[in-house]
């Protein structure tokens, strides 16, 4: 019984830190984009504008939480919750440090993939339940995009599974003690990262909500708290993909020896994650948005063969014990 309370305490600490940091990420992103585009960004609320997200939250809470009369009400309300819950559930299997992490599941990687594939429903159902043309188009784009990119997101990770011989994320981290998987699985990492951007609907793959052509895509009809949930889900998704990349390809909390003793493991882990989050933001500022058919063609014609060849080469090299 004592263990259960300890676990519950750990879960609430992790959730209590995750959600505010996702909100902070909004400010970090706006500020960084501002700097890279040679302007200031939000710098008025608090020192360096650090309380901007808090101000945004107050604004969002003050808005009317409107459910359109023409919508499918229950599905309309449930859709944003599904998205946020699926992403938060995925964090349960992530090993943050040698002894921090909610669940040590022996199918951790599969659990992550399962939650990622269930998260599609959030966007698809939001688009359908809104009962408006723009939202429906956004929802359909989201379904096509996510189903396509999911295929090789899973395939790109199989190289890592092959090398570590486990679906358990903690064991995957521990098997990188002799060298991070980014050395041998560079192609796998690139494919995973691109698929991850597509899964979290970030620029340049934000076609489901492309504001220039679909007003706001699947969340056109959403406002107030329900919109905030979509927003939160997106930024949690960015953090999730970064966390997973670090666990699978950058050795998790591990560091080479002289560096490892300088800082605690969890700090190293968070530092690696924040570098990857910055890459996400930098990609957003520097890349244009492709057309939708280009997006799907790119996926099936380049990413899928690349992931398959990567898996084949890894399998051959692992069998002949080269790596």
């Amino acid at each position: 019984m004592h263990d259960t309370w300890l676990k519950l305490f750990e879960i609430s600490i992790i959730l209590g830190l995750l959600i505010p940091s996702a909100a902070m990420l909004v400010w970090v992103e706006r500020r960084l984009i501002g700097i890279w585009q040679d302007r200031l960004g939000p710098n008025r609320v608090g020192p360096f504008g650090i309380l901007q997200s808090f101000a945004d939250l107050i604004k969002i809470l003050g808005k009317e939480d409107w459910v359109p009369p023409f919508s499918d009400k229950l599905v309309f309300i449930v859709a944003p919750v599904i998205g946020a819950v699926c992403v938060l559930m995925s964090f349960a299997v992530i090993p943050f440090s040698p002894n921090i992490g909610v669940a040590d599941l022996n199918i951790g990687l599969l659990f992550f993939l399962a939650m990622a594939s269930l998260a599609v429903y959030s966007v698809v159902l939001a688009g359908w339940a809104s009962n408006s043309k723009y939202a429906l188009l956004g929802g359909m784009r989201a379904a096509a995009q996510t189903v396509s990119y999911e295929v090789f997101m899973g395939l790109s990770l199989m190289g890592v599974v092959l090398l570590s011989g486990s679906f358990n994320l903690r064991e995957i981290v521990l098997s990188q003690q002799s060298g991070w998987f980014i050395q041998t699985q560079f192609v796998g990492f690139i494919v995973f990262f691109i698929a991850g951007i597509a899964e979290s609907h970030r620029l340049p793959f934000d076609l489901p909500e492309a504001e220039t052509e679909l007003t706001a895509g699947f969340h056109t009809e959403y406002s107030g708290l329900k919109f905030a949930l979509f927003f939160l889900g997106e930024y949690l998704g960015v953090m999730l993909i970064s966390c997973m990349s670090v666990v699978l390809f950058f050795g998790g909390w591990l560091m080479p020896e002289p560096l490892a003793s300088w800082l605690p493991a969890i700090v190293w882990y968070l530092l690696k994650v924040s570098v990857l989050v910055m890459v996400f933001i930098l990609l957003r500022t520097s890349l244009p948005r492709p057309r939708f058919d280009q997006l799907l063609l790119f996926g099936w014609k380049y990413m899928l063969p690349l992931a398959l060849v990567n898996l084949l080469v890894t399998a051959v090299l692992a069998l002949t014990e080269v790596i």
Partner: peptide, 18 residues
């Protein structure tokens, strides 16, 4: 269990809804 969610709930039924 993992494959049931990934393949059936996460992929095939999404296509149905689609």
């Amino acid at each position: 269990a993992g494959l049931e969610v990934i393949v059936y709930a996460g992929a095939i039924l999404v296509l149905f809804v689609f």
